[in-house]
Design a protein around this nucleic acid. Structure first.
Lengths: 193, 193
DNA sequence: CCGATATTTCAGAAAATACTGAAATTACGG
DNA sequence: CCGTAATTTCAGTATTTTCTGAAATATCGG
């Protein structure tokens, strides 16, 4: 591995971290390298810097492309493929969340819906269905919220995050001033279990 | 594997899903089984239902305990260990987020802080540090927001989630009514890059 | 303390995953 | 088209992870 120490530290960390996600070490390292790099890199650059085989890099890049985490581009008069990550880190977050949702939440929601359609035949299954219903409703709440947030422009999203739970206080005030408005969502939850 | 079909479907799905997280198939299956089960199960119960070895279950349970995802309890006059998941699914979410933060975000934040302390020796490293700074600030924003949310009681948390971006609209109104209040957080971001 | 039961540890087997080098395919300039 | 450069595929190997059975350890009632 042929990298300035500061960059190497980060790349190695991301490689290890990769295992805790579903991605392998090399993919994590390639991503870290691209994330830190000022200009786009081609496969051969990556081979040199990480010291892994050309084919491994090829597979890693394919994986990252399937996650939409890297952008492919070309330089004039050079027919090699160059890769980079978005400059805007919030774009990266959005992609990451979107892809994980697609791979982990959506299939599970589908399965839950299917299983919840079935007729249970005994009380054990009936209880299981209750639990699955709870999970289903949770996932649905979270994905609805996410869909909402997804539409927000970054500036506003950051505002909201910085506000944190102060929002809550503002809503309390609002509720006291206009007790009826918004009640459909904010007060009907007494029996939400 | 010896389970009612409806439960088996869910357990198998969770087993596969486990791989996309950092946990292995058996751990995923054990967790799914406990989650659906009406009453706590002991290790032998799990062995019978999943058809895996006793030692595998032992390791799986240890793993789940290290994640704080299962609770160990005892029945009077029975010295076997019984395991269950919390009844409250929101408690499960909180634990999950907390543990993942502990394992993934916190170590990365630590590393980023360390690397950001170092003096960079050339422009490549300098650019890398800018990128790491962006990631650091992002993680910090998210963990601060999370710390805030963590304190909220579930009822209120759900209210906020259901509200989604409608919050935004309320804030707009508030801003128009009291243009100065809260401006520190909500208006200073023009140069946030 | 003893014996019975429960749990954990651990070395090795089995399975899954990652990685490589070589060959095949693709893409492009001339 | 042809030749060259770039990329992908893939079969085999290496590595890592998971899983098992057996042995070791712990726990408890008597």
């Amino acid at each position: 591995m042929n990298l300035p120490p500061l960059i190497q530290t980060f790349v190695l960390h991301f490689g290890e971290m990769g295992s805790r996600w579903g991605i392998n070490r090399t993919v994590g390292q390639i991503y870290a390298l691209l994330y830190l790099s000022r200009e786009p890199l081609n496969a051969e650059d990556i081979v040199e810097r990480l010291g892994v085989s050309r084919s491994n890099v090829s597979m890693g890049l394919k994986e990252l492309q399937s996650w939409n985490l890297v952008r492919l581009q070309h330089k004039p008069g050079d027919r090699r493929d160059y890769f980079s990550t978005p400059d805007d880190i919030w774009q990266i977050v959005r992609t990451l969340v979107e892809e994980r949702k697609k791979r982990e939440i959506d299939p599970t929601l589908t399965l839950l819906r299917e299983v919840l359609m079935q007729e249970s035949t005994n009380s054990e299954e009936r209880h299981a269905q209750v639990r699955m219903r709870e999970m289903h409703d949770l996932f649905e709440l979270l994905t609805d919220w996410y869909a909402d947030m997804q539409h927000l422009e970054t500036e506003r999203l950051v505002q909201l995050l910085k506000l944190g739970t102060k929002v809550q206080k503002i809503l309390d005030v609002k509720d006291r001033l206009f007790p009826t408005s918004g009640a459909k969502n904010r007060r009907s939850s007494g029996k939400d279990k």
